[in-house]
């Protein structure tokens, strides 16, 4: 799904004393099939963007197109439900939205709302379970008897079961332990590739943005601050620190190395092994020059 935001602004409680501008004159586009990371501090407008993506809110000014759907202050998509069936949003702590008696019913809830037939739903539940690596014997259990990590997988399966074309992930690994975080992100990346999804990841983790995204958008106070490939964006350490954002640790280290030894290595997705050997060569080279 191609997405484009054109000069979008959104103001909460418009025309009241409590007026609050959440995003301002924001333009960007996302190509179908790409993996985009949106980064910014709490309050930078990330969650406002997410809510526009499936028409939970409409822009105060400007226009948005998501696939064939258009949203603007005056333009309300006729078929909001259809839009929502194509855009799957995994909200922060998605396990908080579980409510059915069984895992299977909860996963099937979305598809049922979107008018999918019973047999098809059964199939979708199976597929979604496989996708999130949830054992089938949990299907008839109550979701509230599961562990935190499993509950989150159930909630994610519920979003996937609708077969979205655009998958929006809002801090999907918050609260998980390091292995849980990595497993979860690897799972999303695999889904992204397999199902040819368009994926938007809202995150605080520079490491994840670097590892998975092919395009990064940095937000600051409701405006677009930077945009580009992860290596491009993270190469500009000074600009990022100006808005109190870090660069991924590996890039940070390379900077510190440069300051100390004046040897420069640009990051281009090397493994730690490769980095160590490049850095060693640098060190040796420096010595030889002296």
């Amino acid at each position: 799904m191609d997405i484009s935001f054109k000069n979008v602004s959104y103001v909460y409680q418009y025309n009241t004393p409590f007026e609050h501008r959440a995003i301002e004159d924001l333009s960007f586009s996302v190509k179908s099939g790409s993996f985009v990371a949106i980064i910014g501090h709490t309050g930078s407008g990330k969650s406002t963007i997410i809510q526009h993506l499936n028409g939970l809110i409409r822009p105060t000014s400007g226009s948005i197109s998501i696939g064939n759907f258009n949203l603007s202050a005056s333009d309300k998509p006729k078929n909001l439900k259809e839009l929502r069936s194509k855009v799957g949003i995994v909200f922060q702590y998605p396990e908080h939205q579980l409510f059915e008696e069984t895992v299977a019913k909860d996963i099937g809830f979305g598809p049922k709302n979107f008018g999918i037939g019973d047999n098809e739903i059964m199939e979708r539940i199976q597929q979604a379970c496989t996708a999130v690596q949830l054992p089938n014997d949990l299907l008839e259990r109550s979701p509230f008897d599961l562990s935190g990590g499993q509950m989150r997988r159930v909630a994610i399966a519920g979003v996937l079961a609708v077969n979205p074309e655009l998958l929006v992930l809002d801090e999907p690994t918050a609260g998980l332990d390091p292995r849980g975080q990595q497993d979860m992100m690897d799972m999303f990346y695999q889904l992204h590739k397999q199902k040819k999804l368009t994926t938007i990841l809202v995150t605080h983790s520079m490491e994840d943005a670097l590892k998975y995204a092919d395009h990064v958008i940095i937000l600051n106070k409701g405006k677009k601050y930077m945009e580009g490939t992860p290596t491009e964006v993270f190469a500009n350490k000074d600009a990022l620190s100006k808005v109190q954002l870090d660069v991924p640790e590996v890039i940070q280290f390379l900077h510190e190395f440069k300051e100390r030894f004046e040897g420069e290595i640009t990051y281009s997705n090397q493994s730690i092994k490769q980095l160590a050997s490049e850095l060693t060569n640098q060190l040796k080279g420096l010595t030889n020059n002296e």
Binding site: D177, P178, K273, A276, S277, L279
Partner: peptide, 16 residues
């Protein structure tokens, strides 16, 4: 299910 920090990993590669 745990890991070590980036610097510790990098140090290990240097040792190798």
């Amino acid at each position: 299910g745990l890991d070590i920090p980036f610097v510790a990993k990098l140090a290990k590669e240097f040792i190798e």
